[in-house]
């Protein structure tokens, strides 16, 4: 970030580079409320007010290369306090989307890529997924008060379709039980799809609208295929 503080070339002061965005960064009054409200302010020099100015000044390459948009949690406190109602989290997400996919930090793009190819972030095969669900279902059935509990998989015409967060069929299988116990007690008619059950949608974090649409479309396809009108998508 240091070089750009030294020189800004005039030919780069091109607002037009960002004009395809529906955002209002040019209205920024540089009051600094965003910086004061931000939980990440000061970390690695991060300052949302500066980021907004950089976008306003057309410093596209710099903001795309910067770590700043990735250490922001997009919590929207800045937007909440902004007197000009600038959509700063939306701006951050759009900047993330402009980075080359191979340069997306951590496992974000890799997980999303796996989900697009296999239906879930873990590339968990269908038979393993079903085995885990049934295994956890049997544990519930062993508890007093939940006799005869079974996990309804791919049940056509159920009232509710639920998605699953991948960590619940990975390291946190006990956390599958809470909703299932509530369904049992409420005598709900519910089901889990055996394909495309992934409830997370990491395109939200990587700024990848096309991937988000694909992931969401698969959930809608499941609802249509199984003739289900209600969706519980707590991820």
């Amino acid at each position: 970030m240091e070089e750009i503080q030294q020189t800004i070339e005039m030919d780069r002061l091109n607002h037009g580079r960002f004009e395809s965005w529906p955002f209002s960064q040019d209205f920024c009054v540089t009051c600094g409320l965003c910086s004061s409200s931000c939980p990440a302010s000061g970390i690695d020099g991060f300052d949302p007010r500066k980021l907004v100015r950089m976008v306003s000044l057309g410093l596209e390459d710099e903001v795309i290369e910067a770590r700043w948009p990735w250490i922001c949690t997009m919590c929207a406190k800045c937007e909440h306090v902004c007197p000009m109602e600038i959509n700063i989290p939306g701006m951050v997400r759009s900047i993330r989307g402009l980075r080359e996919r191979e340069k997306v930090p951590g496992i974000l793009h890799k997980g999303l890529d796996a989900a697009l190819k296999t239906g879930n972030n873990l590339s968990l095969p269908k038979e393993d997924f079903i085995f885990i669900l049934e295994d956890v279902g049997e544990e519930i059935a062993d508890e007093p008060g939940f006799e005869g509990f079974k996990v309804p998989i791919d049940k056509e015409g159920a009232n509710i379709l639920t998605t699953i967060h991948n960590k619940l069929v990975n390291t946190h299988t006990d956390d599958l039980k809470h909703w299932w116990k509530i369904f049992y007690a409420a005598k709900e008619d519910w089901t889990v799809p055996s394909d495309n059950w992934e409830g997370t949608n990491w395109g939200l974090f990587t700024g990848d609208d096309a991937a988000m649409k694909t992931m969401t479309g698969r959930i809608v396809d499941n609802m249509e295929k199984l003739k289900i009108r209600n969706l519980l998508w707590p991820e």
Binding site: I43, R67, I71, T73, K77, P89, P105, G106, L108
Partner: peptide, 25 residues
């Protein structure tokens, strides 16, 4: 409510690998 402090784990920061930053906020 509207003024709630962020947990620090939003925006995919659990998965970016920038853990020192995430713990700090």
């Amino acid at each position: 409510k509207r003024e709630q402090f962020c947990c620090g784990g939003g925006g995919g920061t659990m998965t970016t690998g920038y853990n020192a930053e995430r713990i700090l906020y």
